[in-house]
Design a binder for these strands. Structure first.
Length: 707
DNA sequence: AGCACGCCGACT
DNA sequence: GTCGGCGTGCTC
């Protein structure tokens, strides 16, 4: 005889609470829903969607405060047990409530309680149905799949490794393949093996722009299989449908970005993380999850293989491959017959000044790079010019008195942008966003903006000078020196409108663009067969950045940008401008020798006791004053229990010490091992939370990518 | 995060 | 006399 009125533990998305916090509700009907079932619960004066976490006969909460569940959603658990186990792990490891982990991955329409219809069947309690139309199931017609190109020997070895492990439990491999080596083809074969074995596939990519291209290729190869795309770029309705398709076992393949690591696939048989080194896998707001690491853990919990792919693996994954924890699958050659790795050249900017005012040399790029652009244009081929900064220039200054346009809310220079010309609006007085010449000052940290002054506000000098150059300026000045070239720009500003990024890529693909100027976003994954020249400018600031991962990141970025050149049979050329040509990174880059760079950087990390040879966490805080922020961290430091192998450094101001008028400080925690770190954080963070109260904004970042 | 409750300035 | 400013604290 089942006991009526059981207590259900429910996870709800409530931030700022104790780790592992769940909420108790009464289930006054027979047959309490199993863990993983979505439920609607009363929440103060409203209702919320949560997931059942567990059940019990007793509760710590006084009975008069326990409230009844309003309804269960569907008669089966949407989240399978291994996914709950993943959330449990993430909750403990990243120190957040399970609700904060799980609920944000649920599409908005499925969290809106108003959109549920609640019915009361004869017995069993009220029941709601997931909102939204289920999508039409794919008719199971054998249609002819797109052709499967023959694999080269390296690709075949990688596929064979995987084929031997499908259905055999957990296994991890690093697919280390140079750009253009056909990693995607290996993924597609691995997907086929897995589908044939009756299991589902989760395919993670770092960003939205890459999702559609990959999803298209997957759909071409598997026309009979339902593929769900999960990114925040989709409309709400489409996101809900994709989630439900996975939860219902209808979608056999999920392609998605970071948050798709929690896709409710029923039976994952393979997890692939493409471009595993990419920083986008690390969540930078809310709970600081690392989706790549969670993907490995999910594979472990689901008992399936995981494949991490990259041309420039993270030092963590490379170290795991070297130590034998991961299998190392190499693709050392470009896949297209005759395609070779591009030729690289480093241009010493100290020898080739881009001096202003000199008629012979003025311009956005150094003379050797300009010559190469001209030659490329003359040959009817495409080039890509990579720059590190968007906007017109990263700063605006007065050479007469030293004044610099600084944001008054942040410790940062205003960036200069060239907007569309300001159109005066009738009735709206001087609310213009830019000055008469169309220049706007924008703070890249708090987004504050104002018209750029026509003269120096300090001394009246009318000749304010842009310092440095961004993509807008490069685009404009390049147009002046290459009047016949069709030049386009791709950065966050030019791709803000939905679909404009895809349109630029399509133009590039169609050959309607000769020179594409862009920021990081042009570096990733795109394959332009007619692109033979890549120019890289303005990356020195990345090389001297104070972060210990700066070099690793820059090397990956430069290799990735370089990899855009000469992917088809036309040979590619890459020119990198720098003032630091003697830096060892450039020798490794010229040789395109990732392994040499990794070995050097790992030796440095080991000597300095940095990841992957140590584990880090950072406690960060934003407060109204430096004293308040620093005081909080000092107090937290004193409250910390002593744990062997753990060292807590003194508080320091953050890299950008003031953002939006908030003082930012941080404190580094270093531990020899993960378990040492966790045995500090477990007892410590509740004390930190207690002393912070409600008015301080703080968070813990486990495995930070920037310190 | 919402959304309440709770104590101090300018209005019908 | 109240309407409402958003500081602080709770939601099973």
């Amino acid at each position: 005889m089942k006991s009526q009125s059981r207590v259900l533990q429910v996870v709800v998305d409530v931030p700022g609470l104790q780790v592992g916090q769940v909420f108790d509700f009464r289930w006054p009907w027979p047959d309490p829903p199993p863990a993983g079932t979505a439920v609607i619960v009363p929440w103060a004066s409203q209702r919320r969607v949560g997931f059942v976490w567990g059940a019990s006969d007793v509760s710590e909460v006084p009975p008069e405060r326990l409230r009844d569940v309003i309804a269960r959603v569907d008669s089966w658990p949407a989240l399978p047990e291994p996914l709950l186990a993943l959330a449990r792990f993430a909750s403990t490891y990243y120190h957040a409530s399970p609700g904060e982990i799980l609920l944000p991955s649920l599409p908005e329409p499925l969290r809106r309680v108003a959109s549920f219809e609640i019915e009361s069947p004869e017995s069993g309690g009220p029941q709601a149905r997931w909102a939204g139309r289920p999508r039409r199931a794919k008719p199971m017609v054998r249609s002819e799949a797109a052709s499967w190109p023959a694999l080269n020997a390296d690709q075949q070895r990688a596929v064979d490794w995987l084929a031997a492990r499908v259905g055999q439990g957990f296994a991890a491999a690093l697919l280390f393949g140079v750009t253009g080596s056909g990693k995607t083809e290996v993924y597609l074969h691995a997907v086929r093996q897995t589908l044939d074995a009756g299991r589902d596939v989760l395919l993670l990519v770092p960003e939205i722009a890459l999702t559609e291209g990959l999803a298209r290729r997957v759909r071409e190869r598997f026309p009979d299989t339902d593929v769900a795309v999960m990114t925040s770029g989709l409309a709400d309705g489409a996101r809900a449908q994709a989630w439900l398709a996975a939860a219902h076992g209808q979608a056999r393949i999920v392609v998605g970005t970071r948050s798709a690591v929690f896709a409710p696939l029923r039976a994952p048989g393979l997890i692939i993380v493409d471009e595993e080194h990419d920083a986008s896998y690390k969540q930078q707001d809310g709970v600081r999850l690392q989706a790549r690491d969670l993907a490995v853990m999910r594979a472990h919990l689901a008992g399936c293989p995981v494949l991490l792919g990259s041309a420039t693996p993270s030092l963590e994954s490379w170290n795991n491959a070297q130590s034998g924890r991961y299998a190392l699958l190499r693709l050392p050659n470009r896949a297209v017959a005759g395609a070779r790795l591009p030729k690289l050249r480093v241009i010493d900017l100290r020898a080739h000044r881009r001096a202003r005012g000199s008629a012979a040399e003025a311009g956005p790029v150094s003379p050797p790079l300009l010559d190469a652009l001209r030659a490329c244009l003359a040959a009817g081929q495409q080039s890509l010019l990579f720059a590190n900064r968007r906007g017109w220039a990263p700063a605006l200054a007065c050479d007469a008195c030293g004044w610099v346009a600084d944001c008054d809310q942040c410790s940062a220079h205003f960036a200069l942008h060239r907007a569309r010309l300001f159109r005066p609006q009738a009735g709206k007085a001087s609310a213009g966003r830019s000055n008469a010449l169309g220049y706007t000052l924008i703070c890249h940290h708090c987004s504050a903006h104002r018209p750029a002054p026509a003269a120096c506000p300090a001394c009246g000098n009318p000749d304010l000078l842009p310092k440095g150059q961004g993509t807008q300026k490069i685009e404009a000045e390049l147009a002046a020196v290459l009047p016949d070239a069709r030049i386009a720009r791709m950065d966050r500003d030019s791709t803000r409108r939905r679909g404009s990024g895809a349109a630029l890529l399509a133009d590039m693909d169609a050959g309607a663009i000769d020179v594409l100027v862009g920021t990081q976003m042009v570096a990733k994954g795109h394959d332009f067969p007619r692109l033979t020249l890549v120019g890289v400018t303005g990356t020195d600031s990345l090389l001297v950045a104070p972060d210990f991962r700066a070099e690793e990141r820059l090397f990956a970025l430069l290799m990735q940008v370089a990899g855009r050149a000469g992917r088809a049979t036309d040979p590619g050329e890459v020119l990198v401008e720098t003032r630091l040509p003697q830096h060892p990174l450039f020798a490794e880059l010229l040789a395109q020798d990732y392994e040499a760079a990794a070995a050097r950087l790992l030796a440095e990390r080991e000597a300095l006791n940095l990841p992957p040879y140590a584990t880090l966490a950072v406690l960060r805080v934003a407060a109204t004053s430096d004293a308040q922020a620093q005081g909080f961290l000092d107090q937290a430091r004193e409250a910390a229990p002593a744990v062997t192998g753990v060292r807590i450094y003194h508080p320091v101001p953050a890299g950008v010490p003031r953002v939006a008028n908030q003082a930012r400080w941080q404190m580094l925690v270093e531990a020899g091992t993960r378990s040492q770190l966790q045995s500090l954080l477990g007892p410590w963070l509740p004390l930190v939370a207690a002393q912070a109260g409600a008015r301080l904004r703080w968070h813990i970042d486990v495995d930070p990518i920037e310190v």
